[in-house]
Computed example of a mutant assay.
Amino acid sequence: MDEVVAALADPVRRDILLMVRAQPLAAGQIADRFAISRPAVSRHLRVLREAGLVRDTVDGRRRVYTLVTAPLDELAGWLARLTRPVGWQHRLDALETEVHRTRRERQRAAGGSIAQEEIA
């Protein structure tokens, strides 16, 4: 996960990931979209490849890059744990939801029996 986070830390690499998310692109096509040197783009692509975030295939003399999302799963799980309520909070939230649901059901049941008594 550390390699993935380090790879995502750079805005150029994040832009590259968004580019290859839409469609596979050759290294030259990626480099043409940046105002930095081709060797710099090549280094960014190497970091992404080593982190497992892109896969490259050889197509003649070109290297074509595609997005690999599997390494993001561990990061997404960790972020979900980070943003989830801590300790008892999630249980208390569930209890509050259940209390409100029970009250609504009782009010509906009481309202339904009152309406039936008025009709009779």
Rank of each mutant, 00 (worst) to 15 (best):
G52N: 02
A27R: 08
V5Q: 14
A9P: 08
T83H: 12
Q116C: 04
G77D: 10
P85G: 15
M19F: 09
G52T: 01
R21S: 14
D73E: 15
A51P: 03
E105H: 06
F34L: 07
R104T: 07
L79E: 02
A22G: 06
E118K: 15
A35H: 12
W88G: 15
R43S: 11
Q116P: 00
L92Q: 10
P11R: 11
G28L: 05
L95H: 10
R38Y: 07
L48N: 00
A80H: 11
L45A: 09
V64S: 04
E98C: 02
V58K: 14
R101Y: 00
V12N: 08
D32E: 14
R106I: 02
V54F: 02
I30G: 01
G52P: 00
W88Q: 15
V99S: 00
V68R: 12
R33Y: 04
A31L: 08
E3V: 03
A80C: 10
E105Q: 08
R33G: 03
G28K: 11
T69D: 10
L82S: 11
Q23Y: 06
L95T: 05
S113A: 09
D15T: 15
L72A: 03
E3A: 12
A115S: 10
Q23G: 04
M1I: 08
V5Y: 14
S42K: 07
L48R: 01
R55T: 04
A115Y: 05
L53M: 00
E105P: 00
A31P: 03
V64G: 02
I36N: 07
A9R: 13
A22T: 11
D93N: 09
M19K: 13
L25K: 05
I30M: 06
L53N: 00
R38K: 13
D73A: 15
G111W: 04
R55K: 10
D32N: 08
A109V: 05
G77Y: 07
